[in-house]
Design a protein around this nucleic acid. Structure first.
Length: 172
DNA sequence: TAGGCCATCTGGTCCT
DNA sequence: AGGACCAGATGGCCTA
């Protein structure tokens, strides 16, 4: 796919002067209003939320928003780190072309499936006879594989994965 | 220039 | 109460 040189861009993080003054209200107040167990009528909830809102100075709201934004950024960074870690364990060829998120997930799924198929193939069908001692249950791997086969019976996983790798080689 | 991908902001909802 | 999670909106960067 594409190599992305996302260097400079990105809106300046929390530009305090330009942060929008959006109408905010107490999240917890609103949440209480909408939860099924809470049988409060909407009007009283609105009023309560409004009171909370008014009790916050605009500076308070601003600070809370900035803190919330920061937490969300950190959360997304952690998510992206996890994506990167996943990219690094999936064999693919064009290392200079970073996989997109959707490509990473799709490739990982097919890679796992192909590995599972390979393991089962190497075991030559013996896995299904393996009993976990004492439990009498069959191999979890085998059970899982059977379950997956039920959903996608005729797909050659290894072939599918190879095709996908090939497509990346082509720079699709 | 259009379309894909992404980071960030935001408000609603859920969870502890 | 407050943090985590989620999805929609927005706008920048890049490639074809």
């Amino acid at each position: 796919m594409k190599a992305k040189g996302k260097g400079i861009k990105r809106r300046l993080v929390a530009d305090k002067d330009t942060l929008r003054e959006t109408p905010t209200r107490s999240k917890s107040e609103l949440a209480k209003c909408l939860r099924p167990k809470e049988r409060r009528n909407k009007e009283s909830c609105k009023a309560a939320a409004e009171r909370t809102k008014q009790s916050w100075s605009s500076k308070d709201r601003h600070v809370r928003r900035l803190e919330s934004n920061e937490r969300e950024r950190q959360r997304m960074h952690k998510l992206n780190n996890a994506f990167q870690a996943l990219r690094e364990v999936i064999p693919h060829v064009r290392a200079e072309n970073k996989l997109s998120k959707i490509e990473t997930l799709t490739l990982a799924k097919n890679y796992i499936k192909s590995l599972t198929a390979t393991i089962l193939g190497m075991s030559n069908g013996h896995l299904q006879d393996i009993e976990v001692s004492g439990s009498g249950s069959r191999s979890k791997l085998y059970e899982h594989y059977q379950q997956q086969r039920g959903e996608e019976e005729h797909e050659g996983q290894l072939e599918k994965y190879s095709t996908q790798i090939h497509n990346f080689r082509q720079g699709s």
